[in-house]
Amino acid sequence: MAIRTRDKDRSRILFIAPAILWLLTFTLFPLLYSLYLSLHGSRFLRVTHFVGLENYRMVLTDYRFWQAFRVTLTFVVVDVIATTFIGLLLALLFNNPIKGIRLFRTLSTIPLLAAPVAIGYICMIIFYEEGGPINNLLVALGMNGINWISHPFWAKVAVCIADVWQWAPFAFMVLLAALQSVPDEMYEAAVLDTVSSWQTFIHITLPMIRHALVTVVLLRTVEAFKIFDIPFALTNGGPGLATRTLTFNVYTTGLRDQNLGEATAISFLLVIIMLTATFVFFRIYRSEYE
């Protein structure tokens, strides 16, 4: 009996060992090593000596960090709201018996499958100020072209449009699935009670899909904090620092300026910001998950 239990235990360990090994190698070790780096000085990609919290002090007193923080926060707020809103609108629209909905659902996943960096480069063509398709259309309609890349405000708008275009289908698909799981009887009862469409949405649809909605917002928030590829390819973070995000700052500090200590310090600050946001989020929506 004892031998059989030991064999069972060994089998269990063998089965979970690859996962543990993977986690240690690709998650825990890099995390601990980057913590080590963030507490050390570096020169030309070489670790020098222990500096305590000096890298954190340098980062927190650098306006580039705070500028990147503001830009990231702007993208998070705008992108999450826009993605969820557009996804919900599309889901409500296609939660009706419409011909060709399956085809649309399939097509809508295409942006999700594309690499963000590729989307960034495609958007360079789309938003090209001297004869790109959007500005050509605006001019044909008798309007002035927009300085999509060269103006700080419009550059932010261009990045947001590209990001929302990629992620709105994700919100659409999750919310459509949630909408389709709402029992028809509830809508039928509402119709009998002569409730308006708006009231039906507020009192029946929204409460019934709230779990999915919260999940979409949470996942999009985490993803939006990490935005890098699109501004990297489309605007290179400019003009000036107008579209430079925190992850972009990690890249330039670590790889371009070869300052590993400050780059990892920014990474840890980003982790703290994201953990704080997630914690606050769960505090607010705790009841949804209990």
Binding site: E129, N147, W148, A155, T235, G238
Partner: peptide
């Protein structure tokens, strides 16, 4: 100012 503003990008 004596060229296309787009050159900033």
């Amino acid at each position: 100012g004596a060229g296309p503003r787009a050159m900033l990008g």
